[in-house]
């Protein structure tokens, strides 16, 4: 019997692309479980922030005014643009263009780096002003939410780095791009969460 036959019926070799059926989530389904779990964790923190604020509106409003809305807005634009580059990277690999995919993802990676730099400047400003998680409830939420998100950005950058490296070596194709879609989905989640975090913590009063 031919290795590609089962009971006399020809069997087409399975590739990663074929694992992603019509209507399924893009990328690896197991990773989506992780994405949903992360979204729930952030969702609980967002709601906890809102109800903690309701108990002490004056304190939260006064503390919120010490944040740099400009930094928050620039970081939102940076992440949105980075996410857009990832979309273009995924589109490129779906057309089998490994190098173009790597270029777009490198752009996304660099913008992710800009986000990290701006956030570190913001964290440093709070550190030098002797503001810590124990200063008050607002800063406890602000620092924990933004640091938790910051860690996800760093994780996303590591994932993007691996994908860029593999794409540069021609490791993906128009038939095999589940890895790119999986990393892209994680990066978009990071963007999705910041889109909620920014107005909640920096803007809405």
């Amino acid at each position: 019997m031919d290795s590609s036959d089962i009971n006399g019926y020809p069997v087409k070799p399975l590739n990663m692309h074929q694992l992603n059926h019509k209507g399924d989530l893009p990328g690896d389904f197991a990773f989506w479980i992780f994405i949903f779990a992360e979204m729930i964790a952030f969702g609980v923190l967002f709601v906890a922030y809102a109800f903690a604020r309701a108990k002490n509106v004056e304190l939260f409003n006064a503390s919120q005014l010490t944040l740099s809305r400009t930094s928050g807005a620039i970081n939102t634009l940076v992440l949105i643009t980075s996410s857009y580059f990832v979309v273009r990277g995924v589109a490129a690999i779906k057309s089998g263009l490994n190098k173009q995919c790597a270029h777009w993802l490198t752009g996304a990676f660099l913008f992710g780096g800009i986000f990290v730099c701006i956030k570190m400047v913001e964290f440093n400003a709070k550190y030098t002003a002797d503001i810590t998680m124990s200063t008050n409830n607002f800063y406890m939420f602000y620092l924990s939410l933004t640091f938790f998100h910051f860690m996800h950005v760093l994780m996303g950058l590591v994932i993007l780095g691996f994908i860029i490296n593999k794409a540069r070596r021609g490791g993906y194709s128009a038939q095999n791009y589940v890895g790119v879609e999986t990393g892209a989905s994680f990066w978009h989640m990071v963007d999705f969460l910041w889109i909620i975090l920014f107005p909640l913590v920096y803007i809405i009063r």
Binding site: G23, L25, P26, S83, V87, V90, F192
Partner: peptide
């Protein structure tokens, strides 16, 4: 972001 960047509109 969910529908057009993550690609959920096709799911």
């Amino acid at each position: 972001v969910a529908n057009y960047f993550m690609g959920l509109r096709n799911t």
